[in-house]
Design a protein around this nucleic acid. Structure first.
Lengths: 192, 192
DNA sequence: TATGTTATGGAACGAATGGTTCATAACTCG
DNA sequence: CGAGTTATGAACCATTCGTTCCATAACATA
């Protein structure tokens, strides 16, 4: 008894994610969003609240994609321990095309952009990133004791942040792979 | 025969650096700068060109401060090799007060902020950061061969980026120190 | 056909942005 | 004093921003 929505909600959201992913929150204008999403101003405000609300939704959506990758690697039964972490890192850092990996990670980008400027969005991104660190630690517990797992997990997480920045600076893929291998190798060695 | 400048050029610049350091380039408004620098709009444009030009100057100034720290540690004769790198990392990551270290590094912040949005500023920040990586490699050559020095230098540089991000996320100082020690320890071990 | 929902385009809003101009005053020094 | 430089504040500009509102059209169902 009413006109149905003509646009695909998820498809339009994906376009919005791409915008924010490319240029960040504040540098993405409403005009950018509207043309990319292919909807009118009115439709935008009727369906997504406002720019800020849409960004929250985009962070959530992106976070779920990340969860999906985590499920395929860190929580999968195909790999375990350090090997699952390697698979994860390869998938997020090495597998994407140059165009994609040069965008970095929306969550990390948001962390950097909103630090000391926008507490709410910063907290949100931070919270969504936690699951990665926790999944790291969880996997490490298969090979290390509790304390070492936490220590190593946080150490790897720090490096993930560094690698994410490096991909935006255009680091060569082979160097990146070398670094990942080297870092994981360190954890394999029995050491004090 | 003419009225002298009343404000201290360097002092005012330092205030500008602080602004950009705290909130980034685009989030720092002219009003922010004027009140912090304590000068009038006219004086601002007469002496510093415009916001963009001032930011370039600030990056340069900040870069020189970094050079100073490099000189005190990486290029000093008091320490050498890995030990000088440790001193550098301690000085930039651990020594500052919470308030300072939570700002991260102006250059790294700028790298993240301007990626895929402002090529010129990104290149400038990138270029100013190079000296750190090069100084790392230079020091490592005292203990490793050419190839290993480059590999390890770039590896440490990646971690520096990660640590910089972590300080903005409020990582605890003792964990940070643990990670630094651990990373440097890896390089000390003779390993394939 | 009538009703209720969804979409559209455009106009307009207020606020904030970075930047320019100008008349005026403060000051130093020949 | 008077020439020359420096600083100031206010007014003003054009632009962009996110947001709201409204009249209108498209559409599905009862």
């Amino acid at each position: 008894m009413a006109r149905p929505q003509v646009f695909n909600q998820q498809q339009v959201m994906a376009k919005a994610v791409e915008c924010f992913w490319l240029k960040g929150y504040s540098e993405t204008s409403l005009a950018d969003l509207l043309t990319a999403m292919g909807i009118s101003r009115s439709t935008f405000y009727n369906n997504f609240g406002d720019k800020r609300q849409l960004f929250r939704l985009c962070l959530q959506a992106y976070g779920q994609q990340t969860q999906h990758i985590i499920a395929m690697t860190l929580l999968s039964n195909k790999f375990s321990g350090l090997e699952s972490i390697r698979q994860f890192l390869h998938l997020v850092l090495l597998a994407p095309t140059e165009e994609f990996s040069s965008r970095g990670c929306l969550l990390v980008n948001t962390l950097a952009e909103t630090a000391r400027v926008d507490d709410e969005l910063n907290q949100l991104a931070k919270q969504l990133m936690q699951s990665v660190k926790l999944a790291f630690i969880q996997q490490l517990q298969k090979e290390f004791d509790q304390a070492a797992s936490i220590r190593h997990g946080e150490w790897l997480f720090t490096q993930l942040l560094g690698w994410r920045l490096q991909t935006q600076l255009g680091i060569a893929k082979n160097i990146l792979e070398e670094q990942i291998d080297w870092s994981l190798l360190q954890l394999k060695q029995p050491m004090k």
